[in-house]
Amino acid sequence: MKKSKKKVVLIVLGIVLALIIIVGVIVYAVLHGLYKSSNYVEDENVKQQYQEKLEQGSEAPQETIDPEEAQGQKIDESEVKEIEKKRKEFSENEPITTDGKVYNVLLIGVDRRDDTWAGNSDTMILLSINEKKKQISMVSLMRDTYADIPGIGLRKLNAAHANGAGPLLTETVTENFKVQVDRYITVDFNNMIDIINMVGPITINMSDSEVRVANDYMREMCTLRKENLDDHLIEKGGNVVCDGMRAVAYARIRYVGNADYQRTERQRLVLSKLMEELKDMSLTDLYDLADDLLPMVTHNVPEDEILGLLLKSPDLFKYKIVQDRIPYDGMFNVIYVNGQDMLVPDWDDTVKRLKETLY
């Protein structure tokens, strides 16, 4: 009788184990198929592609402004060399910080009209997940920040993406800000409209001035996307229910309020609103969303990492969110050089504060 019961128990355990294996195989197959639909690119392939362009002398063009429009202090060559010297001394003495419990991903929004070049990165948000502190940090890196781009030299930070796409921008941020950026995710404004439509709508409080400029942006975007402008136009300021077109137009506003400084706040606000929407989604809903969303983004996140983040997402959405931008207030100077206004951070204080936030 005892042997019979033991045999039954073993059979039941065998069946349960078999079911677990079968379910595991099915789950893996489903998630693997999800990942395969994404636009994953090898860093080395991208680097080789752009290295060939640089060797042929095809560095991406730089935006310039007239001296009369410049906001920065006009400096001569000797002053430029002094800035470079200070930055180099700091870079040589400051180690790159890395931590296995902190995962840094660079979110990149690209402004481009076609696929003939990588495009300038008008949105750069360092998204940092700290499992020890249960904190998600969103730090905007301003496009006009003066940075040393490997293989290119001292340029605006957004020129890194124009000359080497995600891998070069990731390397540039790591080397200049001395924090290990693990991965990047890139999306252009056109696809961002579709992504917000999938997740949203979201509600944003806009001023009358912001509405006016957002409507101007939407005229351009509706023409490019061949959509009816009347379906998206905003009548007046206040709490505005935003589809993708409205939200992206709002995030692009640069000349209302405190210029590009305030634009980074708008971009983080849109991202925060999207994260709020995601909080209420089940794993099944998140999977369905990822299935539609992943083909629209370009990234270098390996399969095990992206699936791990998907499975952790219900917990991650409970983390405290911290927001900031670089350059920090009171920690930078504005200079005018080579026909461009550039923001020169106080590297010592800037990197110290960034590391304290992330780690």
Rank of each mutant, 00 (worst) to 15 (best):
residue 280 D to N: 09
residue 265 E to C: 04
residue 295 P to D: 02
residue 280 D to K: 08
residue 280 D to G: 10
residue 279 K to M: 11
residue 274 L to W: 10
residue 293 L to Q: 03
residue 261 Y to W: 06
residue 292 D to Y: 00
residue 295 P to R: 02
residue 290 A to M: 10
residue 271 L to Y: 06
residue 291 D to G: 00
residue 267 Q to V: 11
residue 263 R to M: 09
residue 268 R to S: 03
residue 268 R to I: 10
residue 294 L to C: 02
residue 282 S to W: 10
residue 264 T to F: 01
residue 266 R to C: 09
residue 278 L to G: 01
residue 264 T to D: 05
residue 285 D to S: 13
residue 269 L to E: 14
residue 279 K to N: 09
residue 267 Q to D: 08
residue 267 Q to N: 14
residue 286 L to T: 05
residue 283 L to R: 14
residue 288 D to H: 06
residue 297 V to L: 08
residue 271 L to P: 05
residue 297 V to W: 00
residue 279 K to P: 07
residue 296 M to T: 00
residue 262 Q to L: 06
residue 289 L to I: 04
residue 273 K to D: 06
residue 278 L to F: 01
residue 261 Y to I: 15
residue 295 P to I: 07
residue 282 S to E: 14
residue 266 R to I: 09
residue 274 L to R: 05
residue 282 S to C: 12
residue 297 V to I: 15
residue 285 D to L: 04
residue 282 S to G: 14
residue 276 E to S: 13
residue 296 M to L: 15
residue 269 L to K: 10
residue 284 T to Y: 14
residue 275 M to K: 05
residue 260 D to G: 08
residue 288 D to S: 13
residue 281 M to R: 15
residue 273 K to Y: 08
residue 288 D to W: 03
residue 294 L to E: 01
residue 271 L to D: 02
residue 270 V to C: 04
residue 283 L to K: 15
residue 283 L to F: 12
residue 277 E to F: 02
residue 284 T to P: 01
residue 275 M to Y: 08
residue 259 A to Y: 15
residue 259 A to E: 15
residue 278 L to S: 03
residue 275 M to T: 07
residue 278 L to V: 05
residue 269 L to C: 00
residue 275 M to N: 04
residue 292 D to G: 01
residue 267 Q to S: 11
residue 271 L to F: 11
residue 287 Y to E: 12
residue 277 E to R: 14
residue 259 A to G: 14
residue 285 D to Q: 15
residue 284 T to D: 11
residue 272 S to P: 09
residue 267 Q to C: 11
residue 294 L to W: 03
residue 290 A to K: 00
residue 268 R to A: 09
residue 278 L to C: 05
residue 296 M to R: 04
residue 293 L to A: 15
residue 291 D to W: 12
residue 280 D to P: 01
residue 278 L to P: 01
residue 270 V to L: 12
residue 290 A to E: 07
residue 269 L to G: 00
